[in-house]
Every structure is written in structure tokens, then in C-alpha cells.
């Protein structure tokens, strides 16, 4: 998902019997469905895993503005442009909610920014694909935000209070994103032949990268087992991916578009769709920095940060000056 590969402690979750008294009380609190709040005691592994996940999630929202930002000045109508602007502004907001939730664990915003800019922290693989034509804005909203919702809805029940509350706000806003995407897809699919071909092309390019968003199968992963015991992660990746395919296939049918998977078929027995796995080699390449747009995305973030330095410094200098003159006046 937005956080596709969150490494946890690397070992299996401890059994209640092998836990210290503090760890046991902590785990039982989570098992009772109670929330963990910033100043509560927590195992170091919980704090670190959570920071990694929230960091990846926040960075994804921020980098996720770039593929769409590309089309703000190229939107076909003023209405589409204002809608896209509002959506991109929401992504910035989502990034900020998540950074602010992560900061409650004692990591500074600048530290997190530094990790993103240096390439040390990850963000979702999906944003390393280019957006080549206008209907990609439709596909991104429909598929990418659709996949994001799949994962974010259960995260509203995650064990860490500030993270769960941030997710509640995000989910409220995310539905607009998906619908505006589908709205674009409808316009394109029911438009001229050429428009429909563009919509099909977008679906062809974004289908598998969207399936990759859920991350590789993790039913055997010790990292996921620990995260699930801590309720930082709620569902297995395959579970959510299946749900996404089941939800999306009929929508594609409605649009009269073909999902680029010959194996995609409703299975009467399992009552879900059979589908082909994405190319996981490609996924690992993209996530480790070798996707089509990794360099461009990071360069854009670094440029924005560097170009804004004089402005941030100026703001701070101005407020320090005002404070000093206030003190002098007193």
C-alpha cells in the first residue's frame, strides 16, 4: 500500500508468557482494543515500526502530489483544473496529518523530511510511474486512490491513537478523490473513439502498478505478523488486493474497458475474481530506486526544499525580530 514494505522487529511476535510485565500490559491493552497514546509506555520495536510506516505513508502523500501536479496547468477545463487543485491540496493535507501524527512519537519533521530527500525513506512504488495523458488523472483517482482507500479504511482502527485519528480524516476526504477519478474515466470512456482509447491506455499502464500498491504476499512474513499483533497492520496484502480486484473489475466493465489480464475471470466456486499477479521483479526494482520516475520525483522534492530555504529562513528571522521588538517594548 502507501507503506508497502514496513520492516518490523524481524522476529516473530512474542507470546504473552515470554513478555515482561510492561510488554504484557501493553499487548493486553491492544488486544482489548484500547488505543495507545503518545506518552504511554510502548516497546521500542512498536515505536520504530510505527514511525517507519507512518513515515512511508506521509512521504507517499507528499510525493503523490507530483504526478498529478504535472496536469494542473494542462487540465482540459477550468472546472477540471479547480477539482484537481483541490485534490492535490488534499494530498498535501494528508501528508501533514500523518507527519504530525508521527511527530507525537518524538521524531522531528525535519528528520523525516531529511530521510525522504536523501532517499533513505521509502514511499509508494506507484508514484514512480509517469502520468502521460489526461486520462491518467482519471486512472490515478479511480485505481490508485481506490487501492489506497482499501488499506486506509481498516487503518482507522489501528492501535496508535494519533495515527487512527489521522486516518479518519483522510478517509473522509479520499472518497472524493476516487469519485473524481471515475468521473474522468466515464467522460473519456463514453467520449470519442480517441478518448476511449486514451482511457484504455491509462488502464493498461496503471492496472499492475496499482496491484503492486498492496505489496507482495506477506502471509508468511514475520514483519507482518508482528505488525498485525500490534494492530499497526490490519489485513494481509493479498486479502486487500483481492478485495480491490473484486471491486474494480465490474467498474471497468461498466466503463466498457478491458483490464489487461487474460486470466481475469469470475470464479463461481471461490466467489471472487481470479487474476494474474503483477511482475514482482519490477516492483522490487521500482521500490529500490530504479523505477521510471524515481530520480525525477526525488529531484523535484529536493529542488522544492532547497528553493524554499531562503523563504523559511526569512519567515523565522522575521518572527524572531518581531518577538525581540515586543520584548524591548515591554
Amino acid at each position: 500500500m502507501y507503506a508497502q514494505e514496513v520492516k518490523s522487529t524481524g522476529s516473530k511476535p512474542k507470546s504473552l508468557n515470554s513478555m515482561s510485565a510492561k510488554e504484557k500490559a501493553f499487548q493486553e491493552k491492544i488486544d482489548r482494543g484500547q488505543r495507545i497514546e503518545p506518552k504511554d509506555w510502548m516497546p521500542e520495536g512498536y515505536r520504530r515500526t510505527l514511525l517507519r510506516q507512518m513515515g512511508q505513508h506521509a512521504h507517499s502523500e507528499i510525493v503523490g502530489q507530483l504526478p498529478e501536479g504535472n496536469w494542473i496547468s494542462r487540465a482540459p477545463t477550468l472546472e477540471r483544473k479547480t477539482i484537481l487543485l483541490a485534490k492535490v491540496q488534499d494530498e498535501a493535507g494528508h501528508g501533514l496529518y500523518l507527519y504530525s501524527a508521527a511527530e507525537t512519537l518524538g521524531k522531528s519533521r525535519d528528520e523525516m523530511t531529511k530521510e525522504l530527500l536523501s532517499g533513505r525513506a521509502k514511499y509508494s512504488s506507484i508514484f514512480n510511474y509517469p502520468t502521460l495523458n489526461w486520462s491518467d488523472m482519471g486512472a490515478v483517482g479511480w485505481l490508485v486512490d481506490g487501492a489506497a482507500i482499501m488499506n486506509q479504511v481498516p487503518l482507522q482502527r489501528t492501535s496508535y491513537g494519533p495515527y487512527a485519528r489521522a486516518m479518519v480524516r483522510i478517509c473522509k476526504e479520499e472518497s472524493f478523490h476516487q469519485r473524481q477519478g471515475f468521473d474522468i474515466m466515464m467522460k473519456m470512456s463514453f467520449g470519442s473513439k480517441k478518448q476511449k482509447a486514451m482511457a484504455q491506455d491509462s488502464l493498461n499502464r496503471f492496472w499492475y502498478p496499482s496491484l503492486m500498491m498492496f505489496g507482495p504476499s506477506d502471509s508468511e512474513s514475520v514483519h507482518s505478523a508482528q505488525s498485525m499483533a500490534w494492530k499497526i497492520k490490519i489485513n494481509f496484502n493479498d486479502e486487500l488486493r483481492q478485495k480491490f480486484v473484486d471491486q474494480t473489475a465490474p467498474q471497468a466493465e461498466y466503463l466498457g474497458l478491458t483490464i489487461p489480464d487474460e486470466k481475469l475471470k469470475w470464479n463461481e466456486k471461490t466467489e471472487q475474481y481470479d487474476y494474474s499477479e503483477p511482475n514482482w521483479e519490477e516492483f522490487f526494482e521500482v521500490i529500490s530506486g530504479n523505477g521510471p520516475c524515481n530520480t525525477e520525483r526525488l529531484a523535484a522534492r529536493n529542488k522544492a526544499w532547497d528553493d524554499g530555504e531562503w523563504f523559511r529562513d526569512g519567515l523565522l528571522a522575521n518572527s524572531t525580530k518581531n518577538q525581540n521588538s515586543q520584548i524591548a517594548a515591554e
Binding site: 483541490a86 491540496q89 488534499d90 504530525s100 519533521r109 489521522a166 518581531n322
Partner: peptide
Amino acid sequence: HVGSLHATDAGMAMNNARDVYTRR
């Protein structure tokens, strides 16, 4: 309480709060 944000002073905090937390 809805969250937090970074700002140099109260005025900027107020503007940012409006943009980040009351867009709807």
C-alpha cells in the same frame, strides 16, 4: 484537538490551520 502544524508565529499558524484542517 485536531492535530498540529509548524508555523513561525500565531498568524501563520492560524492561516495554516485553516488550510490544513478546515478545507471542508
